[in-house]
Design a protein around this nucleic acid. Structure first.
Lengths: 219, 219
DNA sequence: CCGCGATCTAGACAGTGACAAGATACGCAT
DNA sequence: ATGCGTATCTTGTCACTGTCTAGATCGCGG
């Protein structure tokens, strides 16, 4: 504890921190991923950054502000990951959509605390510019992945339906997986499969966007 | 407020409440649905029930206990609803699975606070007998709905995959809907559709369990 | 070089969960 | 019925939290 290159706390030489905002965000993310979302408090972040308990208020107005800014960086990071994965996916639009789903779940598993924070909307303030932008960026990445499918002239309603289906499937899988609710289903897989194996099995079983017409399984 | 048949608080006649446990659970649910999950505190529940701030600890050990017991009643209620809806669904196993999804989302919309609490696992204690039983009951209801599809001799792995797919789709849709994230998609529907319309459109577009073989779209 | 504003500290207050100790009354054994 | 053990409930307290206020320190532009 108290590494040698820690900013203050050892020597209170510099009254001003220099880049406290970024330091607080970093400390907050560390606490979030290590101790869970309920341990992420304004004072804990201030302690970790080596500043007084009231310092964070000057950069983020209140706790909602800190959480919102942190969620915002999560959303942009998320959008970048998803966009990169879908762009790098070879094959048709269907495999691209699956790549998006894989990236979605992979992000949730890599940053579980951040992912949960991003969807803890009652503690966030979506009107904050940073969060608003992050949400827009992530939403655009998702929309782009689905829109690639729309090449065959789908109606806006059908595009919305497919987007909702793909998004719901990926998000539900990620949430249930993080909650440990899918564990029995994973155990039911042959050879005691992994979460990835279950996701692939889900892809194999679902046919989102296989055909355009809602009814009539013809063709 | 302060209905005439309120237990105490008006006359501190009865030192003992009589049925404080149920009263606290009722008050807690009221607070949860009216003011949100962050307003649901031990002391707030105690105030609403007209008892001292330390009284709840004797029935639920701590806040986690209260939340867990409330989530447990949510799960049994949820299981009953889902089981009833799937049992009442006419038609084949596919329409029964859709009925389950509809009931799933309908429950989330009818009791948003309770639904969110049920999946706020970091604040719950799954080892509590009541919550353990509630989880088991709800899980059984879901498993039964999926198992009906398994009549055509599916492998356990495929059953798990279909269960994960159906559950993820329903859960993700419910969560995203409660968060308001699906609003733009709903607006994109023809004639400014509703959430129900979007769910039906999702059903029409997805073909979970349409066939057992993963590849080959041939029918 | 000065002073103004941004940054950070120190202190205080109300609200929270949790714990301890005491008051009350229910219900069971006799 | 009656007395007592114990579950139930109250009061008081403590550490911790978010938020507000006032003051200290420093950086930067005039």
């Amino acid at each position: 504890m108290d590494g040698p290159i820690r900013r203050r706390r050892a020597r209170p030489a510099t009254y001003h921190h220099g880049d406290l905002r970024a330091a607080l965000l970093g400390a907050a993310e560390t606490i979030l991923e290590r101790d869970g979302i309920q341990a992420l408090t304004l004072r804990a972040a201030a302690r970790a950054a080596g500043v007084s308990h009231a310092a964070p208020a000057h950069h983020f107005d209140d706790l909602t502000g800190l959480l919102s800014e942190l969620a915002a960086v999560g959303f942009v990071r998320f959008g970048v990951r998803v966009a990169a994965a879908t762009a790098a996916a070879a094959g048709g639009p269907r495999s691209r959509l699956q790549a998006m789903g894989r990236a979605y779940v992979a992000f949730a598993r890599a940053h579980p605390g951040l992912f949960q924070l991003m969807f803890r909307s009652e503690r966030l303030d979506a009107t904050r510019p940073a969060l608003r932008d992050g949400l827009a960026a992530a939403g655009q990445a998702l929309r782009r992945a689905v829109a690639a499918r729309a090449s065959r002239a789908l109606s806006p309603g059908q595009v919305a339906a497919e987007a909702a289906a793909a998004w719901s499937l990926a998000h539900g899988f990620a949430v249930l997986l993080l909650d440990g609710r899918l564990r029995p289903l994973i155990a039911a897989l042959p050879r005691g499969g992994s979460a990835d194996a279950l996701l692939e099995a889900v892809f194999a079983v679902t046919r989102v966007g296989r055909g355009t017409a809602p009814a009539r399984p013809r063709r």
